[in-house]
């Protein structure tokens, strides 16, 4: 059948729902073994953080969609929360596998206790579902959203720096084989938008990043004897 915008939308939502079928809201045994390898076990912090993000998102989403769409809002929220759980843990596990192979490290205590990393990952998972459900829902049942929920709405909701969100996108795409082509293109557009404007806002961590790499370059120059 020819792909109409509505049919594409419905396919994407169906794909998302299929992903959720295998959703689990608890970390897998493999992932728990990584957590147990950490100097400081991150399990409690991760579970608390996911619960907090779910609560904050629920409030802000309900406020944004207006009372008229409360039911769709709560449906979307429930889908979102489960997808975030599954995506979060799945990504963690896949990413740690890659990092373990790449760095030959087994103790990821620093990374798994890094708040910016986890918040960026959760925001990325939320953005995927929002982009799938939000835009498509408005196409399919004319949901009248009072606030624009498209990117970078989630960064403001979670008080997250765009540059930190940018850092997880590529690894997220690598670790999440079930992402649809549309979703990958959407995340790539987010990347471009961050690099073109959002990352250059005055309080962005990008400036520290540039400063530190310049300092590292400066040190590298000094360490070379001039005669070479």
């Amino acid at each position: 059948l020819p792909q109409t915008p509505v049919r594409t939308a419905m396919n994407t939502i169906q794909q998302l729902m299929m992903n959720l079928n295998s959703a689990s809201d608890k970390p897998s045994d493999n992932l728990i073994s990584y957590f147990n390898n950490c100097t400081v076990n991150p399990t409690e912090g991760i579970l608390d953080r996911v619960e907090n993000v779910g609560r904050i998102f629920k409030e802000r989403f309900a406020k944004a969609v207006g009372q008229g769409c409360a039911e769709i809002g709560s449906q979307a929220t429930n889908i979102l929360i489960y997808c975030v759980f599954e995506s979060n843990y799945n990504f963690n596990f896949m990413n740690l596998l890659q990092e373990e192979e790449r760095l030959s490290v087994h103790n990821f205590s620093k990374l798994l206790n890094n708040n910016d990393f986890h918040m960026s990952l959760l925001a990325c998972a939320v953005e995927v579902v929002m982009a799938t459900y939000g835009r498509n829902a408005s196409q399919t049942d004319g949901m009248n959203i009072e606030t624009d929920l498209s990117f970078p709405w989630i960064l403001n909701v979670l008080d997250l720096k765009a540059f930190d969100f940018y850092k997880v996108i590529e690894s997220f795409i690598k670790a999440e084989p079930s992402l649809t082509r549309e979703m990958i293109k959407h995340l790539e557009r987010c990347e471009h938008r961050i690099m073109e404007s959002l990352a250059w806002q005055s309080d962005s961590p990008l400036f520290d990043h540039i400063k530190q790499s310049k300092e590292r370059e400066g040190q590298a120059d000094q360490s070379e004897p001039t005669c070479t």
């Binding site: 890659q98 990092e99 990821f108 620093k110 910016d116 990393f117 690598k174």
Partner: peptide, 21 residues
């Protein structure tokens, strides 16, 4: 995914990006 432009270089990953290496 073929049509995504991976930009991380060799030796760069999520651990380095978050200064957790």
């Amino acid at each position: 995914p073929q049509d995504y432009h991976f930009g991380l270089e060799e030796g760069e990953g999520i651990s380095e990006l978050f200064d957790c290496d």
